[in-house]
Design a binder for these strands. Structure first.
Lengths: 141, 141
DNA sequence: CACTATTATATCGTGTGCGATTTTATTTTG
DNA sequence: CAAAATAAAATCGCACACGATATAATAGTG
């Protein structure tokens, strides 16, 4: 049979599998602070800079607005962020952190170490992985 | 602020982003043969060997049965596979290819080349990526 | 300045993805 | 051999993820 159509020959499948494995590693750790992985990513974007427009957040995370809008709504329902129409341009929705959202950063400080520990891989492999993936990601987009 | 809580410092985010980018590259190519990416993976597993139990397929793709059962049902509804209870052990469901499912392999033969072309990355980078990801994936699981 | 094009977000439908629970069948054990 | 444990699938609920479409506001144009 066509060797290229075997799962073992696939290059992309390991990336797909690793991505899900990563989310599975994060899940129990993020559960302690009541966040999902995509929600954690949004929080990181906002902890770094706020307010930000819906599409600014979506662009940074490569998520289209069919994904980001309901994601932000769930986060607003949890009280982590607030949504405000820009008065100059009523099309724009500005996303800000609530007090509760800001305070979550302290609790989240332990997440990175916990994840590295749970994944059980060396920082060297991690860095090598990141460099290579970023290189390919930039080429592919 | 905590450097580790910045998106730029994240190692896992690029993997997550690349995984979705890969699925997005596959989407229009697989659409021509009416498959989604997870469905394509199931087909590859079955083209290589059939019949297989539901959990055998799930184990190979690292998908739990909350995912794999509805996935297989949609594929059965499309007429790609058939589901048969094992007569020796009525708990087991054997998944086989239909004639239509077997014939799809010929049409799918062009998929790998199309994907490599659409991603626009070198085979060398791809191989290096695969080796590294597989190494980390094996450690993480 | 009305008309068209563009932009920002929201909505809808379909398909994953996974934890938790349930159902049914087989295996183990007292 | 009956009761408990285990195993294989299925089911349920929730949260993405994305294409396609809709809605509303602003910008551009003749």
């Amino acid at each position: 049979m066509d060797e290229e159509l075997k799962l073992k020959s696939q290059v992309c499948f390991p990336v797909y599998a690793l991505s899900r494995e990563i989310v599975n590693v994060y899940r129990p750790i993020l559960e302690e602070i009541d966040l999902t992985y995509p929600q954690y990513l949004v929080m990181m974007v906002l902890w770094e800079n706020e307010p930000q427009k819906v599409n600014e957040i979506g662009d940074k995370l490569n998520l289209d607005n069919g994904t980001i809008t309901p994601l932000l709504k769930r986060m607003a329902a949890k009280g982590l962020i607030s949504r405000k129409r820009n008065t100059k341009d009523e099309r724009v929705v500005e996303i800000s952190l609530t007090e509760s959202g800001k305070q979550l950063q302290t609790k989240a400080a332990e997440v990175p170490q916990k994840v590295v520990k749970a994944m059980g891989i060396t920082p060297e492999d991690l860095m090598q992985l990141k460099d290579l993936v970023v290189k390919i990601l930039n080429r592919a987009k």
